[in-house]
Design a protein around this nucleic acid. Structure first.
Length: 509
RNA sequence: CGGGGCGUAGCGCAGUCUGGCAGCGCGCCUGCUUUGGGAGCAGGAAGUCGGUGGUUCAAAUCCACUCGCCCCGACCA
């Protein structure tokens, strides 16, 4: 018997959080770095999770009346230049295509040839190219609203990348809508943020704060940016989705003009909203533990993994047959969320212990071992990913199959409750500036331990106070909560001036 | 882009200071035994030592340049 580590993942979260994260992604076989700088390869187990995110979120978009479409990957440089703040915000991180051909070079290599008259920018986001099309499509108020989403990849030349959390290329969805009135566009902006909030909480089991970004942290070109923010296990906040009210800024830049009911020419009011593969990083840092990934059951690539146990060749056939029988039984059962239970039989000819750990690391919600003893008793041996790896229990086959939907629902609820408790335990009302600074200062400066969380403190609204905190502590105001005033008025934690309510300060990804 | 660390078999690393046959563990392949918590034994395959140039009889090792990765920071729509 080989000596094995206590936990499946080394180092643990406590020992080295950043390294733990990478090891989880690797051990769960969700993604890996690629030969291309800053770009990841999303592997089947990770991509399948993404497909479930897409499928479920897409259904929510459709319920709001949005439809999917697809726009070009390339944006002519001049398009991006049309909105001044937008250009400035994105200029530093764009991949630019300048040639359209390769020719044989002197050393047998290839050299770019055929210089483009106008460089093409690989989309960092599509407001400008979509705006150009909307300008064509909109003539009259009768053409509004336009409610379109696209699932696509975008490129932002990030200097420091981390799998799922920040990669040079990533997958996302971006909704772009155009409306007749400001009120209507505002309602769309808020509605889509509610969709994101509900998706994060009900599907990813990830509790989020919702609110408005401060002017400093707004999307370039937006009038207001709304966001959802989630607290990760290292007590840093993750911006998990944004919804922008763009006013008439992009309509003016792109010429989205309609003739109103009164016959006047008016600029349309637009919105944009997006979430990305970053949600996967959020799910990992919300639920994974020192044994690896923990998939939220509602979006897990598979719900139940069946591990056939056998010693001899005769037992092998019997165990596999029994496993398939259970899988078939499970696949007829509805989950509480609609859709059938997904069951996988692991037929790989590996040591049973190794197979079991493999699925622990991947975060499959339920594992069942079935072997000769179970076949004899018409039973199964069950392990849940939300419990310790040793907490297993035997159960009759039919009872187990019937119980799976409720168990999955309970696990989903447990994951949410655990994440919410973690957030509550690391959220603190702070009024004293000294306490504020010590809250965000690690005891060990050399090798900072996990510290901080959400400091719910007062802010006067002055950008200078916000900047001071950012400069001193790398802490930002994550959002101005919609229910900010519920916490009551107070004094700004920086300057002491009046504040209408508390706002969450945190370190962030 | 600044500071630090690192590129040697699929993965993790030793060897570099002090130049002299390319190594270890895991994984992989074959066989047998195993299989209900990360298997055992035996045999085997696998390397442009990140790249280019230089010094030398000889370079993973020394020198120059260069590419890339990781951590911290800055930036992050």
């Amino acid at each position: 018997m080989a000596k094995v580590p206590q936990n499946a993942i080394s180092p643990t979260r406590e020992e080295d959080y950043a390294e733990w994260y990478q090891q989880v992604v690797r051990a769960a076989d969700m993604a890996e770095t690629s030969p291309v700088r800053g770009c990841m390869v999303i592997k089947p187990w990770g991509y399948s999770f993404w497909e479930n995110i897409q499928k479920n979120m897409d259904a929510m978009f459709k319920e709001t009346g949005n439809q999917n479409a697809y726009f070009p990957l390339f944006i002519p440089k001049s398009f991006l230049e049309k909105e001044a703040e937008h250009v400035e915000g994105f200029a530093k991180e764009c991949a630019v295509v300048t040639h359209h051909r390769l020719e044989a070079g002197p050393d047998g290599g290839l050299v770019p040839a055929g210089e483009l008259e106008e460089p093409l920018v690989v989309r960092p986001t599509s407001e400008t190219i979509i705006g150009a099309l909307y300008a064509k499509w909109v003539q009259s108020y009768r053409d509004l609203p336009i409610l379109i989403n696209q699932w696509a990849n975008v490129v932002r030349w990030e200097l420091r990348t981390r799998l799922f959390l920040r990669t040079a290329e990533f997958l996302w969805q971006e909704g772009h809508t155009a409306h007749e009135t400001s009120e209507e566009a505002w309602e769309e902006t808020r509605q889509m943020l509610r969709v994101y909030r509900d998706f994060a909480q009900d599907y990813l089991a990830m509790p989020v704060l919702t609110g408005v970004k401060t002017p400093n942290q707004r999307f370039p070109g937006a009038v207001e940016t709304l966001c959802i923010e989630a607290l990760m296990q290292d007590r840093k906040s993750l911006q998990a989705g944004t919804s922008h009210f763009l006013g008439q800024n992009f309509a003016k830049a792109s010429g989205i003009i309609y003739q109103s009911r009164e016959g006047r020419e008016e600029y349309a009011w637009t919105t944009s909203w997006g979430t990305s593969t970053r949600l996967i990083g959020g799910a990992i840092m919300t639920h994974a533990d020192d044994d690896g990934m923990v998939m939220p059951p509602r979006l897990a690539p598979t719900h139940v993994v069946i591990l056939p146990i056998y010693r001899k060749e005769e037992e092998r056939a019997a165990s596999l047959e029994y496993a398939e029988k259970i899988a078939a039984g499970l696949r007829k059962v509805d989950t509480v969320w609609g859709g059938k239970v997904e069951a996988t039989v692991d037929r790989r000819d590996l040591n049973a212990g190794e197979k079991g750990w493999d699925w622990v690391k991947k975060g499959a919600p339920i594992r069942v071992e079935v072997g000769p003893r179970d076949i004899e008793k018409n039973a199964v041996f069950v392990a849940r990913r939300d419990k310790g790896p040793k907490e297993k229990y035997g159960q009759g086959r039919e009872d187990f199959i019937a119980a799976v939907p409720a168990v999955l629902a309970e696990m989903q609820a447990n994951l949410y409750a655990k994440a919410e408790a973690h957030r509550a335990a690391n959220t603190r009302d702070i009024d004293d500036p000294k306490e504020f600074y010590s809250f965000f200062t690690p005891k060990n400066a050399e090798k900072p331990e996990i510290h901080g969380g959400y400091a719910m403190s007062h802010w006067c609204g002055d950008a200078a106070c916000e900047e001071k905190i950012t400069n001193d502590l790398s802490v930002t105001i994550r959002c101005l909560p919609f229910d900010r005033e519920k916490s009551g008025p107070g004094k700004c934690v920086v300057c002491g001036k009046e504040s209408p309510g508390r706002v969450p300060f945190a370190k962030a990804y």
